[in-house]
Every structure is written in structure tokens, then in C-alpha cells.
């Protein structure tokens, strides 16, 4: 507007500082919308508990994947260490914790893969067997898909780090990625409760 001063002045800088950072707002909104997506699958799972017309039933074939869960949840802690290290600029510490996070996430995916192999080839439970199979594979599979996306992003960052492109300028973006990873872990808590605690 005509009345406004031409050069950014103090009040404008102050004003910009009072507004939130757009990456953070964006990732929070993404988490909001993803939560709504997961909620529907959880509702479907809860709705169909005990409604399968034929076996195998959850209590026959499911056992809680404790080690997997520990790995995934602790990866949320290691990624926090990694981001903190990056904020103070110690790339070595960052690399270490980041790779640990990657390894823990990979372990979770391998564990899930083994569980599924057991269910499909040993117990004969597939997505088309009964309502339990339908809801189990879709809910757990949806979560696994999100872990996979997270792992690809983490791997991407790892490669950039190992190639030496990482420095503390990217702490903000790395932190945003870590929020997504926390979300994936939080969803696992819900999925675990639904499938292995309530559903069994």
C-alpha cells in the first residue's frame, strides 16, 4: 500500500517473528489429517472384533510383537538425540544417532515381515480369509506403509549425511521429519493397543 514504508523496518521484522514457522504448521496439519485417516481403520477394526464367520481367530494366531515395539518406540528417542546434536552442530553424533534410528526402524519392518510370513504361510490367514484378516492386514499394513515412507526419508537424509552434505542449517527440516517419525510411533501405540490388547 502506498502508505507503507519501502524498506523492511523493525516492526515488520518483529511482526514476522511473531508468526509461526511454516514447515512446523504444515507437518502438524499433515499429522492431523493422517490421524483422521488412521482413526477410520481403527474404528473398522474395533467394529469387526469378534464378527468373523470363520477362523483363524486373533487369540489363536496373534502374539504381541514386544521386541518390535521396543525398537520402534526407542527409535523416537534416538531421533531426538540426533536432532539435538545437529542443532549444536556436532555432525558426528548426529550421524551416529541417525543411523541407529534407521536400524531400529529397519528391525521393526523385518519383524513385521516375519510376523506376516508366519501368519500367511503357517496359519493360513490372508486378507481374504475372514474379517479379522481383512482388518488386521489393512490396519497393520497401513501403519507399515507409513513406517516405510518414514524409513525412505530417513535413509535419504542418511545418504546426504554420509556424503557430507549435512550441516546445522538443516536442523529445522530434520526436526520436522522427526515429528513425522514421532507420529508414526504414536500411531503404533494405538495400533498395538487395538490389535494386540483389545482385539485379542
Amino acid at each position: 500500500m502506498a502508505a507503507a514504508p519501502a524498506v523492511a523496518n523493525q516492526s515488520q521484522i518483529e511482526w514476522k517473528g511473531s508468526l509461526p514457522e511454516k514447515g512446523r504448521v504444515g507437518i502438524l496439519l499433515l499429522i492431523l489429517t493422517e490421524s483422521s485417516f488412521f482413526a477410520i481403520f481403527v474404528v473398522a477394526y474395533l467394529f469387526y472384533i469378534g464378527k468373523s464367520l470363520n477362523g483363524p481367530y486373533p487369540k489363536d494366531v496373534l502374539s504381541p510383537p514386544i521386541i518390535n515395539t521396543i525398537c520402534l518406540l526407542s527409535s523416537s528417542i534416538t531421533i531426538v538425540f540426533a536432532v539435538r546434536a545437529l542443532r549444536v552442530g556436532s555432525i558426528g553424533t548426529f550421524t551416529l544417532w541417525w543411523l541407529v534410528t534407521l536400524a531400529l526402524g529397519l528391525e521393526f519392518m523385518i519383524g513385521t515381515g516375519l510376523e506376516w510370513q508366519e501368519l500367511i504361510y503357517h496359519d493360513g490367514l490372508t486378507i481374504s480369509t475372514n474379517l479379522f484378516g481383512t482388518t488386521f492386514f489393512s490396519l497393520v499394513g497401513l501403519h507399515a506403509l507409513h513406517v516405510t515412507i518414514g524409513l525412505i526419508l530417513i535413509l535419504f537424509v542418511s545418504i546426504l549425511t554420509l556424503l557430507g552434505y549435512m550441516d546445522r542449517r538443516y536442523a529445522e527440516r530434520t526436526e520436522i521429519l522427526s515429528w513425522y517419525w514421532h507420529f508414526v510411533d504414536a500411531v503404533w501405540v494405538v495400533v498395538f493397543t487395538t490389535v494386540y490388547v483389545i482385539g485379542r
Binding site: 473398522a44 467394529f47 469387526y48 464378527k51 468373523s52 464367520l53 486378507i127 481374504s128 475372514n130 474379517l131 484378516g133 481383512t134 482388518t135 492386514f137 489393512s138
Partner: peptide, 16 residues
């Protein structure tokens, strides 16, 4: 893939 979410023949719910 033959899931049964809304398949009323396999116990699925049309109301869901």
C-alpha cells in the same frame, strides 16, 4: 484383493 469390509456375505456391514 478379496477383503470383506463391506461384503455382507462374509459378515461385513453395509451400514458401516
Amino acid at each position: 484383493v478379496g477383503a470383506h469390509f463391506f461384503d455382507t456375505q462374509a459378515g461385513g456391514s453395509a451400514v458401516l
